[in-house]
Simulated scan of single mutants.
Amino acid sequence: MAVRGFFYNATDLNDKEHMYNGQDMNEDKAPFYKEGVAYGHLQVTAPGGTMEVTVDGGTRTGYAYINLHTIHNTAQLTLTLSQASGTLPRIDRIVLRNDETERKPSIYVLEGAFSSNPQAPELVNNDVIQEKSLARVYVAAGAVEITQADITDERPDKTVCGFIGSQFEELDFSQWSAQFNKWFSSEKKAVEKDHAAFIKEYTAMVQQFQTERTAQWDEWFTAKQEQLAGDVAGKLQLQIDGLRTKVHNMAHKVNVAYLLETIQAAVTVTLTNITTGTVQTAAITENGIGFYITEAGDYTLETNMESVMVTPKRLSIDYMDLMHTTTVSLREGTNMAYIGNYMGTYLLKESEV
């Protein structure tokens, strides 16, 4: 039959389809186990004092699995090694053997050759005989006993023995990888197609934006060229003058205000530019009056009433703000002069004349 199942009851002795043999029993384990020695089983040790070694056995330490056969060493086994050479060493192997022709397993000593550079003997592995090396035993020249130091455990070595393991220890994902790669390739193509469409649309948008902005720039630049054609300096000056007319007519104007409500009479205030000697005089009341100044510099400010300001005050106007109206005011008892605008009031540098 092409498809078989293990195991079904036979209806009677003539039910050939449901008759099984030893090979069927063995094949039932094949998908699940890797062959070798059960972990910790069949250890080779040397009791010492003789040329003997022992191999563990029993229900807890005597199992192996070779060529689909479960092998059980039911009791501890003692093996005797051949006599040593008086001049040359050799290496023997303790071997677990499965023989399909004899249809039975065995454990025996596979003896190596005497040599100044001894090598372990080769194992046999074919369709009929399969061998696993449990241990190497070094037989020194003139040796009369085997010690534990002479024994090398080979059970962990997968090349000559190995431990029984699950067939699922290393999973093969090649089938799933092939399916995933096919799906990923399809998705990649779709994403690349969408990306190409986006780049095309984005590029068109950028080009349209650049075209529109270029046209706007060209229009503005052409207009400026026409404005600046001919007498460039003159046209620029006219534009500057036009801007100046937009600045409130209080620019350069210093408003000096007498803020003492208790004094009703007018006070004469004199503003003198120390550097140029320009003098401006005005009478002010609580409503104040203004002086026009045209340059920064050091000024003296004085009144004709000691009750308002005993001594002249010196003001340093560090810069001229053409965009703001400034106010200088006198305050009772402070002997200080202030300058400010609609943004607030700022203390000017001042000193006694």
Rank of each mutant, 00 (worst) to 15 (best):
T275N: 08
V55R: 04
S115Q: 12
E192R: 03
Q167H: 12
N14R: 03
T80I: 06
T203N: 05
K188D: 14
V95H: 11
I289K: 00
K253N: 11
I91G: 01
I94K: 00
G22Y: 05
V267F: 12
T70N: 09
D28K: 03
L301E: 00
G230W: 01
V328S: 07
L68W: 13
V328A: 05
S174H: 01
N26G: 12
K16L: 12
W183D: 05
D241F: 00
K313W: 14
F209V: 02
M205H: 08
G142D: 09
S116E: 04
S166T: 08
A283I: 04
M205Q: 14
M19W: 07
T50F: 02
N21T: 09
E219N: 01
I107E: 00
I71Q: 15
E100G: 09
V191K: 15
A223T: 05
A143H: 12
L13G: 13
D56N: 15
A337S: 02
Y39Q: 15
N249T: 00
L330K: 01
W176V: 01
M1P: 14
G58P: 07
D153A: 03
V44I: 11
E17A: 09
T262A: 04
I94V: 09
V232G: 00
I107R: 01
S166W: 12
L228A: 09
Y39D: 10
Q237V: 13
E131F: 01
E102T: 04
S133Q: 05
G142S: 06
Y8K: 06
Q207W: 10
Q148W: 03
Q167W: 04
